[in-house]
């Protein structure tokens, strides 16, 4: 991928994504952390588009920065007295060391191994290919994912529902 457009795009998006991910850890107020999280989701979506994965990029925007960010915001809003600070636990130093080690290990692995790079150009359009793959090659995982979504939705609703309002559901 040598045309300058994608290179510039990659570096810009990489900086945005990693910068905002770092800000999520560094910023004090939890609401600001969520906003930076959304920014990093959008950065990752941009990276997908530079990898010519347009369907997944748009799905990322729709699901991550559209739905999951709202879930996180609702969690923060529904826990008012819990303090909105983004403080760290006492395990701060070992966490830094461990994640640094993980980062170097992954980095070394990715640079050292010779991936069998194929000289295939980017995909023209992926939406129909994904659709076809989902429905004939991965039909079983597709159904399982559907069942899992249903179970997760019901579980979340039942956990959070106030015990006292069974009868009041339809008032």
């Amino acid at each position: 991928m040598e045309d300058t457009g994608t290179v510039v795009a990659f570096w810009a998006l990489a900086i945005i994504t990693i910068g905002s991910a770092f800000m999520v850890a560094a910023v004090r107020n939890l609401i600001h952390a969520v906003v930076f999280l959304v920014l990093s989701f959008l950065g990752v979506a941009g990276l997908y588009i530079t990898l010519s994965a347009d369907f997944v990029g748009v799905v990322q925007i729709l699901i991550y920065s559209g739905a999951i960010a709202i879930l996180v915001i609702f969690a923060i809003v529904l826990t008012p007295q819990a303090g909105r600070d983004n403080a760290e636990t006492s395990m701060r130093l070992p966490a830094v060391v461990l994640s640094g080690l993980v980062a170097t290990m992954l980095g070394y692995a990715s640079i050292d191994t010779n991936w069998s790079i194929s000289d295939r150009p980017g995909f023209e359009e992926t939406a129909s290919a994904i659709g076809v793959a989902l429905l004939d090659k991965y039909i079983l995982p597709f159904e399982i994912a559907a069942a899992l979504m249903l179970v997760a939705m019901l579980g979340a609703i039942i956990i959070v529902r106030d015990e006292g309002t069974e009868g009041a559901a339809e008032d």
Binding site: L78, P80, Q81, D162, E163, G164, T165
Partner: peptide
């Protein structure tokens, strides 16, 4: 155990 939200 209702949802703890203080009235405003």
């Amino acid at each position: 155990m209702t949802l703890k939200s203080e009235p405003y």
